[in-house]
Design a binder for these strands. Structure first.
Length: 421
DNA sequence: TCTGGGGTCCTAGGACCC
DNA sequence: TCTGGGGTCCTAGGACCC
């Protein structure tokens, strides 16, 4: 039996989440900004129509914002994460297997459902239910490989006449779409590769699909060869519905202002470490390696540039916040230099392994057991996220912490911010 | 003034071993 | 005069994704 995948992708996800709770914004241009309110990371349909590009720094479009009365939001990940879970749980009810691929998209396995339901009807049903139950509009692309399903989804978004569902299970339809799809829109072909492919005369997705596989592998890599095979309809990428444990955890942020003092840097690095350690504990893992990075800005040519990082192994693998903060602070002291205006710092935990459960506790030192208890208690109070209880080294004022001037309320995750009707 | 953050996979090349 | 070759492991860097 041949495989069938669907890719379900939310339309303009962050912007849709925002307008959902402010109906007067419907049909108006909306942009959502990156952390620190730096660049545009999401746009409503109307904002796209105004020609606002993904990733553009917000200060470059401030005239447009005023002129077209564009609604501007800081990223509100509490809201988007919660809406995402609602959408995903509907998909899990409807499809036998689901791979949550990102905050706003999921691959489904539809293998076998054709015997009792048309693929297109299934796509339409998914679209309608998600719309009705969450208010979010999705598009559905259906095809025998993930890469083709991506392409189908792209077409469903680009051509409203499709009604938001494209079934590419027929070979003739695949070829027609491949021939009109520019090479850089193929999943797995980024900016660099598309330049090199065009030099070889490969302009369209069809061009890549029909290119000699062996020379693709020789000139590029097995990855691109796989993409070409997938475009031909040969499934090389399986549905990964069991999530593998993470291999590394990163927490880094740009500051809201330039930071020079070691004290403030220490606060920020302590905060990022605490956040990373929370994620590590939520994963039920421990880490063996810790690294700290920091850098100045590099857009301003008049400022001296400096960037550095330091890494250390841990004596015993751990996920204890205070222990990790102590090490991170030590690393930071080693790479901090006075006289620079720092723009960003970050922490990375790596060489992760599963946390030992149960029995091992019996033999670990009482002090260690107490610390473990303390971390568990903190996580419980904070609900597994960062919250009210924290370690003093993180600082209280946090003047460096990121700008979020246009943050919407936590409509769905905080009782006192629930929308009133 | 103002330019995000968090991940994965693959490859080439060096170190080392026999 | 003649100075091997194959294998593994690790790391840094490049490319991609959202």
């Amino acid at each position: 039996m041949s495989e069938i995948f669907a890719l379900v992708d939310c339309n303009n996800f962050y912007a849709s989440c925002e307008s959902l709770f402010q109906p007067k914004l419907r049909n108006r241009p909306i942009v959502v900004l990156s952390n620190n309110d730096g660049c545009v990371v999401a746009r409503s349909k109307e904002a796209k129509q105004l020609g606002i590009k993904m990733g553009v720094p917000v200060h470059q479009i401030k005239d447009m914002i005023r002129q077209h009365r564009i609604a501007v939001f800081s990223s509100n990940y509490a809201l988007y994460g919660d809406m995402s879970q609602r959408v995903m749980s509907i998909l899990e009810q409807m499809a036998p297997q689901v791979e949550v691929y990102s905050i706003d998209e999921a691959f489904l396995s539809l293998t076998g459902i054709e015997s009792y339901q048309s693929l297109n009807d299934f796509g339409v049903a998914v679209r309608e239910r998600v719309q009705q139950w969450t208010g979010i509009t999705v598009c559905v692309g259906i095809a025998p490989t993930k890469t083709l399903a991506k392409l189908a989804n792209h077409a469903a978004k680009a051509y409203p006449a499709t009604g938001g569902v494209v079934d590419l299970s027929q070979r003739e339809r695949q070829e027609r779409l491949l021939s009109i799809t520019p090479i850089d829109e193929v999943w797995g072909v980024g900016r660099r590769l598309s330049v090199r492919l065009r030099e070889l005369g490969i302009e369209s997705a069809l061009g890549l699909a029909e290119y000699d596989l062996k020379s693709l592998r020789q000139r590029f890599s097995v990855v691109l060869e796989r993409t070409a095979r997938e475009l031909r309809g040969e499934s090389c990428l399986a549905l990964e519905d069991v999530t593998e444990p993470k291999q590394q955890i990163v927490c880094s942020r740009s500051f809201s202002k330039r930071v020079e003092s070691l004290d403030e840097l220490r606060e920020s690095v302590a905060s990022y470490t605490a956040r990373a350690a929370e994620k590590l504990r939520a994963e039920q893992q421990v880490c063996k390696m810790l690294s700290v990075t920091l850098r100045t800005g590099f857009f301003n040519p008049t400022e001296p540039i400096y960037s550095n990082s330091a890494v250390t192994p841990l004596a015993t693998p751990t996920n204890d916040s205070s222990q990790l903060i102590a090490e991170a602070t030590r690393l930071l002291r080693g790479i901090w230099r006075p006289g620079y205006r720092y723009a960003k710092a970050g922490v990375m935990l790596s060489e992760l392994s599963p946390q030992e459960q149960g029995q091992a506790d019996l033999f670990c030192a009482p002090e260690q057991a107490r610390r473990k208890q303390l971390m568990q208690t903190i996580d419980q109070i904070n609900g597994g996220k960062h919250g009210k209880v924290f370690i003093a080294a993180q600082g209280v004022q946090q003047e460096w912490s990121m700008k979020r001037r246009y943050l919407s309320p936590a409509y769905t995750t905080r009782w006192n911010e629930v929308p009133l009707v």
